[in-house]
Write a protein that binds this DNA or RNA. Structure first.
Lengths: 215, 215, 215, 215
DNA sequence: GATGAATGAGCCTTCATTCAT
DNA sequence: AATGAATGAAGGCTCATTCAT
């Protein structure tokens, strides 16, 4: 019997079925936590979504918190990737266009991840607080530096780099986090084929050119 | 000749102490619900914040749901006001500037209200769903029409009106909803005196002028 | 201010409005207790039926138990009267006929009283237990003696007096206590004008003559 | 692949320990409900009697109502059996003698069941109301028809069949429902060995022969 | 690797009762 | 004589977690 005295799966060594089940659980948990938040979600709900008995689920993750933490961590990596990709060597507008497009794609493809994160932050970031203050801050500050340089070089309009980043986050994530509201207002056209491209177009135009008509 | 079921305060007539306590409760509930969401909040927490015994709190609002609904409704009115104020007769840029400024002010002054709303939407809008599909949609569609006219007249750059409104919502509310994250990244300068104006400046510049340097 | 230092009404001295309100309360309490029993009834229900505020009701009867006790006691007197009226000097059949008729009349006119009593006994007679073991037992034993004498004298068929009394109680009270069941079976004819007389006729025939055809 | 909401035992399949515990609970619930009625009983009381923790009890029956309903239904079958056994082909007096004897036996052996039923009816039959109006009514009407035929054939004294049935119910159940009162009056002789037979003797004599001395 | 059974803690809500006016 | 306001003590039910198999 692998995995220690009580057969509970340790990370590192894991059979095929173990890692499969972990995936199933994490996926189910994401769906549930992203809607109801940590306290509003129940282990039962997650177990039901994972088509698994509750004790079996707790065999893989001993505590509700553990599942939550695992889902969040699995999400954070994806979260950082697009921002990390911004390079000081590219063309400023092109780099930002790519970043915005990537974030919008994530919102469309993994809305649950975005909502999970939003919920966590709204609750005061009890779990990812540390991450925000350390890794995220470092990364953001670094990229803000790049943007500042671009502005100094006259390659971007004079904007505060941090506010720019916040604005991009807000705008792109909004389409995932406030999906219900958007649907309530513009209806099912959200599900039409071209909607994503149209959205990207609108957001990019706005962020890059602004509202004032250019001569 | 009363004959009520429990001497619970009747709607319509209310004594001084009643309306005071109602206010206290709603204020406390806003604080609690805005952080933990509906399911994550407990009546105990609210009662504690209201410095009131739990049964006394339930003397004013029979059910947790009733409190939640009342807080939300009290919030929605404020919510609509700035958008409703956009007038077709004003200068487009000026009207939008005023709108954005007003929304940023609300985010700064009543962040809890914004978070409460965000939580409700994230949970699928179980309570305000109807409101979104009716009153909000009507109002947004009306204002979108105004913006469309401005664009047609060449007084605004060609933008999709709905996406513009979403973008403004996202950006302005972000400062309330993701406050914790913003603080984690740019630290306590959030609390410095001029921060609000500086934020407004940055957002307005971005939304109005865009990123690309203007010649 | 009559009635002592705190104005609570003492028995003995009472203003007109006080005794009126007491009556109203007792009447309302009878209706409620007779259906839901002591524990199943709430002061609220009684107050609502009495068209009175709860604190005002408790101004007259300090505790729920007090109301219950008062209603029961008010009922017991009526309860005993018909049995007490059985006289050793009358004709046996005539005396019993009168008794049965009187009990049936009470069932029809004051079904709630009968049900209240039934509920109390079903619950183990926590309040009237003493009464049963003392006053009621004395009275029943006395009347049983009379019946026994009648039997000895050959004026009644040889029956056990106690069982006879129980049977009369059971049969007559049944029409009040199990009213719902009777209605479910024989429907609304219960409310037809002649039903009471018809019932009396049937019960008397049975008790007096029995099932076997008489030659 | 279970995926249930809470690992609550499914109907249909049940392990040994499940059916044992269900029995224990139903038995305990019968004792409690029969004395205090539905509203007057607490899940705590039942759990205590069943020597089980409250949540464990609720693991088997999710709601207090479910337990109540289950106990009642388990009782109703027994309830109908003796009446259903009356056959048109037997001797009328003999059939009724058997019925009365059977009902008295049930009262003596399962007094709690009788009291449970009495409590339910007194409360207005909120749960068994439907049963009374359908299955019970059908059965009673059928048997009433048989009795009516017997009367027509001169094999029974002229009695109203429904009132006869009510009288038998009343009389036989009285010994269970009003046990406390009977004990208060005739004391502990209730527990003496021959009491049951003596009661049966008395009731049968009365119902069959009536009070008037036969020549 | 999986599940049925069990439980302590907590949460929403009701209710009898009291206090102050 | 009456009522609005307040509260402690349950009571029904849920839920994360553990135990045993």
């Amino acid at each position: 019997m692998k995995g220690g005295t009580n057969g509970r799966p340790k990370e590192g060594q894991s059979t095929r079925i173990q890692s499969i089940n972990r995936e199933i659980i994490l996926y189910a948990a994401l769906e549930v936590f992203s809607i109801h938040g940590f306290r509003g979600s129940t282990v039962d709900q997650i177990a039901a979504r994972a088509a698994m008995s509750k004790p079996n689920l707790l065999y893989y993750f001993r505590r509700k918190q553990d599942i939550y933490r695992a889902v969040l961590e699995a999400t954070l990596a994806d979260w950082l990737a697009p921002l990390a990709a911004i390079s000081p060597d590219g063309d400023p507008v092109e780099e930002l266009r790519r970043y915005i497009t990537a974030k919008l794609a994530m919102s469309a493809e993994k809305p649950a991840a975005s909502r999970l994160f939003a919920n966590e932050i709204l609750s005061g970031a009890p779990v990812v607080g540390d991450f925000l203050r350390t890794r995220l801050k470092r990364l953001v500050d670094e990229k803000a530096g790049i943007i500042r340089d671009w502005v100094s070089a006259g390659r971007l309009a004079p904007v505060d780099p941090h506010h720019l980043i916040f604005m991009i986050w807000a705008t792109t994530q909004h389409y995932a986090d406030f999906d219900v509201q958007i649907r309530a207002i513009i209806g099912s056209q959200v599900d039409r084929p071209g909607f994503r491209e149209q959205t990207a177009q609108a957001v990019l135009t706005l962020v890059l050119n602004g509202l004032k008509p250019r001569p």
